[in-house]
Design a protein around this nucleic acid. Structure first.
Lengths: 138, 138
DNA sequence: CCGTTTATTGAAAGACATTTTCACTAGTCT
DNA sequence: AGACTAGTGAAAATGTCTTTCAATAAACGG
């Protein structure tokens, strides 16, 4: 069984058809999906899936770190799967594909410097890169 | 005259009471403001200011790089002034204050590495830090 | 395997947020 | 000052997200 099933079980949440549908849709997608899109695609797997449930499921999954929210320029409401430890994505301007990358380490230096300059105590960050994926460069 | 007046003029946009009101409200604010909030405060300066115009003005200002959109966890709809060259903000979890910082330089190394690993050609990024400002740490 | 318990669901209605439309207003240029 | 046209604001339309609540279906014990 996959990771998300374990995580839900461990936290005392049930494994339902709706949640499975949402998770599978996200696993199949290469690009961030809006709740609407997730609902639409999810209905192919679980026809009675409701939009309300998609919203609730995404909130839950986000809390559990199974999914992460991605911010576009306009309308910042996309979701992608997030593997544990990978907290950032690169988005392709061409095809919309989203890909995770590691590299929080490089931020530590920057964060230290900002703490020094501003006096803030930094405890969180949001980092997203955008560009063209190898395919779209052709 | 201030920078934004020049920028608008150069691009062939008019300097109107509405735009001036929006710009002044943002200049006075220390934290990101929602369109509603901007409209409300703007009406103290230009009573007939409409919410529709605030939306249009923010879009325009964002295109011109005069203003930047800030992303919260929930409901990512705040705007702050952006000085040229300063492209990032730290948000205070306590009081909501937003402060710009420089430090894109540190990202260059990270971006190079990600380009190497993923094959993407990176041409943009979104970086925001969150934490507690000096005041709120007390 | 079957019934019980209770988290989860989905439809409808509601609350906001954002966009479109269009007649009118007011910057800007001459 | 007058003409031209970008810009404005109210109303209505459209979207997005949340709340409510009776019905459903996971999970667990027998």
């Amino acid at each position: 069984m996959s990771l998300w099933v374990d995580v839900l079980g461990r936290e005392g949440h049930r494994i339902t058809r709706s949640r499975r549908a949402v998770m599978e849709v996200l696993a199949d997608a290469q690009a961030p999906l809006s709740p609407q899109m997730i609902c639409e695609r999810g209905r192919k797997r679980h026809p009675s899936l409701g939009l309300v449930t998609v919203y609730r499921t995404l909130d839950l999954f986000e809390d559990l770190g199974l999914v992460m929210r991605v911010h576009h320029g306009a309308g910042c409401h996309g979701y992608v799967l997030s593997s544990p430890g990978h907290r950032h994505v690169v988005l392709c301007d061409g095809c919309g594909r989203a890909e995770e990358f590691v590299g929080a380490d490089d931020l530590d230096g920057l964060i230290d410097r900002v703490e020094g300059h501003t006096g803030y105590r930094i405890d969180g960050h949001l980092l997203q890169l955008a560009g063209l994926c190898p395919v779209c460069q052709a």
